[in-house]
C-alpha cells in the first residue's frame, strides 16, 4: 500500500506563495485581462463614450494593409535578428572554445553588451550611424555610399536589426559556449583521428550535437525580437521613416499612445500575447524532448 505523508493543515504554504501570486495577478493577469476587455471596445475620439463591438477591432486589423505589412516586417526583422545574432554568437563561441590562455577575460568582455539597456544600445548605434555626425556614414561616404537612415527605409531597418542583434549576441554566446563545452572532449578527438579538420568537425559533429541549444535560442531570440526590441526602435527610428521600422510591438505603442486608438491597440496586443503563448508552448513541447547526447 502506498503510504502518504500528511502534514497538518496550515496557512503557511499559502502565505509563502502569496507574494508571487499577488505579483502575477497585479502585473500580468490584470493588465492582460484589461487588454482582452479593451480589445472588444471602441471609444470615440474624445473618450466620452465606449461601445462593445465584439471582434470588430480584430476584423479591422486583418483588413488593414498597414497592419499586415507590419506583420510581414516583423517576421523579416525577427528572422534577421535571430539569424545574425545566433550565427555571430556561434562563431564567437566556436573560437572561444579553442582559447586556452585569457579565456576568462575574453568571455567576460563578450558578455558585457548584454548588460546594456536596449535604449542605450539604440543610442550607441544611433550615434555611430548618425548621417551628419556618425563615424560610419563618414567612412561609407569615402567609398561612395550615401547613408541616411532618416530617409532610406532599408537602411533604417538594417540599423535596427544590427543594434538589436548586437545586444543579443552575448546571451546567445553564453548558451552556445556552455553547449559546446558539454560535448565530451573525446568525441572531438575521435573525429580528429578519423581525419576531420576543424571546419568539418564543427559542421558534422559539434553543430548537430548543439542543435537543442540552437532550437532553444531560436525561440528565445524570436520572442526577444518580437517584444524586447521596442526600446531600440524607439530610440533609433521611432518606427520611421514612413513606418519602415514599425514592428508589431512598436505599432501597439504607436496606435495606442500616439494614435489613441485604444481598442485597436489592445486587439494588437492580444494577438501578440497569443503569439508568445504559442511560441512558449512550442518551446516546452519540443526543446525538452529533443535533447540527446
Amino acid at each position: 500500500m502506498l503510504k502518504r505523508v500528511h502534514f497538518p493543515a496550515s496557512p503557511l504554504p499559502y502565505l509563502l506563495v502569496a507574494p508571487q501570486v499577488l505579483i502575477t495577478l497585479v502585473f500580468f493577469i490584470w493588465p492582460a485581462s484589461q487588454a482582452l476587455w479593451q480589445s472588444f471596445l471602441i471609444e470615440d475620439a474624445f473618450g466620452l463614450s465606449t461601445e462593445f463591438v465584439w471582434f470588430e477591432n480584430f476584423e479591422a486589423l486583418f483588413h488593414d494593409s498597414q497592419y499586415l505589412a507590419s506583420f510581414w516586417r516583423t517576421l523579416v526583422f525577427s528572422g534577421a535578428v535571430a539569424f545574425l545574432s545566433m550565427s555571430f554568437a556561434l562563431a564567437l563561441a566556436a573560437f572561444a572554445d579553442h582559447v586556452g590562455r585569457g579565456a576568462g577575460t575574453y568571455r567576460t568582455l563578450l558578455i558585457w553588451p548584454y548588460a546594456v539597456a536596449p535604449v542605450l544600445a539604440g543610442a550607441l548605434w544611433l550615434f555611430m550611424f548618425n548621417p551628419t555626425l556618425g563615424i560610419l556614414p563618414y567612412l561609407l561616404e569615402m567609398v561612395g555610399y550615401e547613408w541616411n537612415h532618416h530617409l532610406n527605409g532599408t537602411q533604417a531597418m538594417l540599423l535596427v536589426i544590427l543594434a538589436a542583434a548586437w545586444k543579443q549576441v552575448a546571451y546567445n554566446f553564453l548558451f552556445y559556449l556552455a553547449a559546446m563545452q558539454s560535448i565530451p572532449r573525446s568525441v572531438i578527438e575521435a573525429a580528429a583521428i578519423d581525419g576531420a579538420g576543424p571546419v568539418r568537425r564543427f559542421f558534422s559533429i559539434v553543430f548537430p550535437l548543439i542543435s537543442p541549444t540552437t532550437f532553444f535560442l531560436l525561440v528565445i531570440n524570436a520572442v526577444y525580437a518580437f517584444f524586447d526590441t521596442f526600446g531600440i526602435i524607439h530610440a533609433v527610428t521611432q518606427g520611421g521613416p514612413a513606418n519602415a521600422t514599425t514592428t508589431l510591438v512598436y505599432k501597439v505603442f504607436n496606435d495606442g499612445f500616439v494614435g489613441l486608438d485604444l481598442g485597436g491597440s489592445a486587439a494588437q496586443s492580444v494577438i501578440l500575447m497569443a503569439l508568445v503563448i504559442a511560441l512558449t508552448a512550442v518551446q516546452f513541447r519540443f526543446v525538452e524532448k529533443r535533447v540527446e547526447y
Binding site: 565530451p184 573525446s186 568525441v187 578527438e189 575521435a190 573525429a191 580528429a192 583521428i193 578519423d194 581525419g195 576531420a196 579538420g197 559533429i205 548537430p208 550535437l209 540527446e292 547526447y293
Partner: peptide, 20 residues
Amino acid sequence: LEPSQRDIAMVFQNYALYPH
C-alpha cells in the same frame, strides 16, 4: 603530424561514439 595523418585508430575509455 596531425592525428589524422598518422594512420592510427584509437578506442577511448568512454567509447567517444558520435551520438547523433
